[in-house]
Simulated assay, not measured.
Amino acid sequence: MSSFTHFNEQGRARMVDITEKSDTVRTAIAKSSITVNKLIYEQIINNEIRKGDVLAVSQVAGIMAAKKTSELIPMCHPLALKGVDISFNWTTQDDYILHITVSVKTKGSTGVEMEALTAASVCALTVYDMCKAVDKGMVIGPTYLAEKTGGKNGDFKRPVPVAGE
């Protein structure tokens, strides 16, 4: 029998059985970013991107992505999310960086890290999609888990912020 949790006795992929795990409140905060040029930054903050309100569309896309994570990541369980919150802030000192923070919450038997990470990624991808006609040189990332609570493995908080924060 494999010691890996996502393999069955034949060494084939499986979705882990979580029926015996206790329901607890679980949260995850994931972050991502996208670096844009000055023109894109100005067009986003002045709502001049031809495809529409970039941050509003990105926010809705992120929420939708969190809810559909199990359809995208093969071993993720479908979850009844209790809350998804997405916020944006800019750094404009040397570069123009949109920072994306996603908070996901549920009460269940498995964590929401993948939902938060998927939402953060899709937010950044949506910004790229909406602005690519202006400049295709945007850079996405890093994308990472900042913290999580709940579950048998306990809480996690990234001890050192990722560069650029």
Rank of each mutant, 00 (worst) to 15 (best):
V162I: 13
A119W: 00
G164F: 09
I29Y: 11
S103G: 09
T143H: 08
L79Y: 01
D85W: 02
H6D: 09
G83Y: 15
V102E: 00
V104Q: 01
P142D: 14
A80C: 06
D17V: 02
D95T: 15
M64E: 01
E9S: 09
P161F: 05
P161S: 08
E48L: 14
H77F: 08
T106M: 14
E113N: 05
I63G: 08
S33Y: 10
V104A: 07
F4L: 13
D17T: 05
A163E: 11
L39R: 13
G83V: 11
D23Q: 07
I140R: 08
H6G: 08
E165I: 06
S109E: 05
G52F: 03
F7D: 02
S109Y: 05
V36I: 06
K21T: 08
F4D: 13
V122N: 00
E71T: 13
T118P: 00
L125Q: 06
A30T: 11
T35F: 03
Y96W: 09
A56E: 15
R158E: 06
G154M: 04
S103P: 06
P78A: 05
S22I: 09
K152M: 15
E48Q: 14
P142E: 09
T101W: 04
E9I: 06
M1S: 09
A28T: 00
K136S: 15
N89A: 13
V54E: 03
F156D: 02
F156H: 07
K107N: 10
A116E: 06
I86W: 03
N8V: 06
G11P: 12
G11M: 13
L79C: 07
M138G: 04
P161W: 08
Y128A: 02
K107R: 08
M64H: 05
E42M: 08
I97W: 07
R14T: 12
K107D: 10
S121R: 05
D85C: 03
V60S: 04
H99E: 15
H77L: 03
T143E: 00
K157C: 13
L81N: 07
A124L: 14
T19G: 03
V102I: 07
K51R: 02
V122G: 01
K67A: 07
W90L: 13
K157R: 14
I49L: 04
G150E: 04
E20Q: 15
S87E: 12
A119F: 00
R158H: 09
V57C: 08
K51T: 03
A28H: 00
E71W: 04
P74Q: 14
Y41H: 11
I34R: 03
T101E: 15
E20W: 10
K68D: 01
F7L: 15
A61E: 01
G52Y: 07
K105P: 14
L39Y: 07
D95I: 14
D155Q: 09
M64N: 02
L117A: 00
H99S: 15
Y144W: 09
T149S: 06
I100E: 03
I86H: 02
K148N: 07
P78D: 10
M15I: 12
T5W: 02
L81W: 11
K21Q: 12
K82H: 12
A120N: 04
K38G: 00
V102L: 01
I34Q: 06
K148R: 10
T91A: 12
I18D: 02
A80F: 13
P161N: 12
T92F: 12
N47Q: 09
T92A: 13
A13V: 10
V122A: 01
K107S: 10
N89L: 06
K136V: 04
L72D: 01
